[in-house]
Simulated scan of single mutants.
Amino acid sequence: MSVQPWGESRPAHRHGHRPAVPGWQPVPSPQAAMRASHADRDRTVDVLKAGFAEGRLSAEEYEQRHEAVAEARTYGELAALVADLPAGPMVTPMLQAVQPVPATFLPPPPVPRVRPTNALAVVSVVCGLTGLSLPAVVTGHIARAQIRERTMNGDSAAVLGMVLGYLGCAFWMLMILAGAA
């Protein structure tokens, strides 16, 4: 047993600190020195199992590497054990920094679809406010039909113009009736 500086004790390997696999060299990368987790070791064992099942490793090689996986402490050590095997899913973190795609090659950002405001709805409100009651009602009804057909904005303006138009028409009708009486 050897005691590590951080207080953890682990069995000493027969060849020192490095796993006993011929030609073993840690994979040089910025992440090679990162500590490996149990899940990382399990993924490495899965790659070794697949290599053995496919006939890429002999039983002796598989056994040696399997023992070395149990003693490996870093990503570099694990990566060296499967470097000559097709790994399928990555067993180590990305060795190269992922560079973002330049903005030139990205699709254009989605343009928020701004629905246009119906012009007749605005005309209806203006007519209603200026006292042109009949044109306010007519343009309000036409505007609402166009808004429904074309999915446009302005429905509240068209309704307001129609209400002002109908109120104006009612006012003028009362004035005519009051003048006739």
Score class of each variant (00 low, 15 high):
A83T: 06
G128L: 02
V126C: 09
I142E: 05
Y166W: 10
L164K: 05
Y166S: 01
V45Y: 12
L120K: 10
V82W: 01
P19M: 12
L81I: 03
V21N: 06
V126L: 07
P107G: 13
E71L: 10
I142P: 00
A70C: 06
W6G: 07
T44D: 07
G131A: 09
T139R: 09
P108H: 04
T104W: 14
I176H: 05
Q25D: 12
P109D: 14
A178E: 01
V125M: 01
V45M: 13
P135C: 08
V163A: 01
G168S: 04
T130G: 11
P30M: 02
L120A: 11
L134Q: 08
G165T: 00
V47L: 01
M90R: 15
G165I: 01
G16Q: 07
F171V: 05
R35Q: 04
A119H: 08
T104A: 14
L81Y: 14
R10Y: 04
L174F: 08
H15C: 07
V122P: 00
P22F: 01
S156V: 15
L106A: 11
A20Y: 05
T151V: 11
V114N: 10
E67M: 06
V98F: 12
F171G: 08
G179K: 05
A103S: 13
H38E: 07
P22A: 03
R56Q: 08
P116G: 04
S29K: 00
G165R: 00
L164R: 02
V45S: 07
Q64S: 05
V82K: 09
V123G: 04
A121W: 13
T104V: 14
L160D: 06
A119C: 02
D84H: 12
G51P: 11
I176N: 04
W6N: 13
F52T: 00
H13L: 15
A157K: 12
G140M: 09
C127G: 03
F52R: 09
P89M: 12
A36K: 01
H66T: 11
W24Y: 07
G165F: 00
A80G: 03
P107K: 03
A83M: 06
D46Y: 07
G23W: 14
Y166F: 11
P110I: 01
E54V: 03
R144Q: 15
S156I: 15
G88L: 05
P108G: 12
A70G: 05
D40A: 06
V137R: 09
V138S: 02
V159Q: 14
P30F: 09
A12M: 10
S58K: 05
P108I: 12
L177H: 02
S58A: 11
G7W: 00
G140H: 00
H141S: 15
P28S: 09
P93C: 02
D155I: 15
L132V: 12
A157Q: 14
P100S: 14
L134E: 11
G76S: 01
R115L: 15
L160Q: 09
A103N: 09
D155A: 14
A97Y: 10
H38S: 07
L164N: 02
Y75D: 15
P110Q: 05
P109G: 15
R35K: 00
H13G: 15
L95P: 09
P110D: 13
H15P: 03
Q99D: 10
R10E: 11
Q146R: 13
V125H: 01
L177C: 02
E54M: 03
